[in-house]
Design a protein around this nucleic acid. Structure first.
Lengths: 209, 209
DNA sequence: GTTCTTGGATACCTCCACTATCCATGTTAG
DNA sequence: CTAACATGGATAGTGGAGGTATCCAAGAAC
């Protein structure tokens, strides 16, 4: 198909598609001549994925490029891919190398007996959250995170179950990416609603209502 | 204290503080004269909170203003405040009024027997996630979200437990805000690490390693 | 009383995700 | 065959967001 059809079927404008090609998010089509190129279903899938990551989830173009790169390389190493995508979350870049939090994070992971890569960006995210709460005068002991982590374990089991029965490694990686990244706002939304519900429940209990 | 001291103790530059004053994020100080104003500890607390929401969490200035406004008004209605902050999450603004997802979301909440406000932005977030997955060719039945929601319930219990023992309503609201918003990246980080761990575990099982 | 600091207003800057325009080459309708 | 339109690629421009730099008049410090 031509670029205009790609545009129609994906909802992205032709100029936006050109932009993604330039930025290396979308691989070039098959060149038919100097000024003609052809695209296939894979381009369409990829483009829809890009639109979801950027438009729905709000990832930056550069993050999206990294994530898609990981998708291309590590279709086998699914759990490495899952780790990689966290760079997405956009946490402040201001690393404080002298902060004591990494030790706390290490202690947490040790206590959990988790097998996670030492350089996982998730570690930095945790450390920074603890640091931020500390400077705000509401420090949080890492042990408070333990029960949260146990719930995260159960969430991860659900996540991985979703990938069962898919054979094609590329498809596994792509669905893993989708479920990891796109489900994040949904899970946070569930948490907010659950908080509202729990808060109302406790308030009702307290007033005997 | 003067603006310069506010700047030193908060880490934000004087010009940034002026910017937040202009944008209405930070209340004006007590005017001593035409060109002198004085700030107190409350300003400092507020400013640190703003820096955490914008700098660490990445909220927009306008969202932060809304959230802080809710904090000022609804110090009593904590669970309403919790619901309000979800506007933060930045999901695409492209509401599709003819999408069938709201019905699914309603079914989910009905099944959960949750007491949540009908206009909760979280509902829209869920609907949009389902819509995005559908257009990507990976539709997700709302029933799949049920076990996730049950885990969210337990998470919410942990969240609300953190607020126990605080009397001052303003302090409750502020800590609720911190724990809800700042903990979000941390919870997602825990999920990613748990996924990595679970994936490694399953892989090890499969290979008999 | 001169120098430094402060608060306030205004204009400017940088980055990001697009978007508009131009042009040479291709395709297609008559 | 040719004239009108479409396509791809390159380059420059747009709009919004989150600050930042500069200027100035009024106080404060020595």
């Amino acid at each position: 198909m031509r670029m205009s059809e790609l545009s129609r079927r994906s909802g992205a404008s032709v100029t936006t598609i050109k932009y993604y090609l330039r930025e290396g998010l979308l691989p070039a089509g098959r060149q038919l001549s100097a000024t003609q190129a052809e695209y296939d279903e894979n381009h369409l899938r990829r483009l829809r994925l890009i639109r979801a990551l950027i438009g729905v989830r709000g990832l930056s173009v550069s993050t999206t490029r990294e994530v898609l790169g990981a998708l291309a390389e590590d279709t086998d190493d699914t759990h490495r891919l899952l780790g990689l995508t966290l760079g997405a979350i956009r946490l402040a870049d201001e690393a404080e190398p002298d902060s004591p939090e990494p030790a706390e994070v290490d202690a947490l992971i040790e206590e959990l007996d988790w097998n996670v890569h030492g350089s996982a960006p998730a570690r930095a995210t945790l450390a920074e959250t603890l640091a931020a709460l500390r400077t705000l005068g509401s420090p949080l002991d890492w042990r408070v995170l333990l029960p949260y982590a146990r719930l995260a374990e159960q969430t991860a089991v659900l996540d991985l179950d979703q990938l069962d029965g898919i054979e094609d490694p590329l498809e596994v990686a792509e669905r893993a990416l989708l479920l990891t990244v796109l489900l994040e706002p949904a899970l946070l939304a569930l948490r907010r609603m659950a908080q509202e519900n729990e808060s109302a429940r406790r308030h009702a209990d307290a007033t005997g209502n």
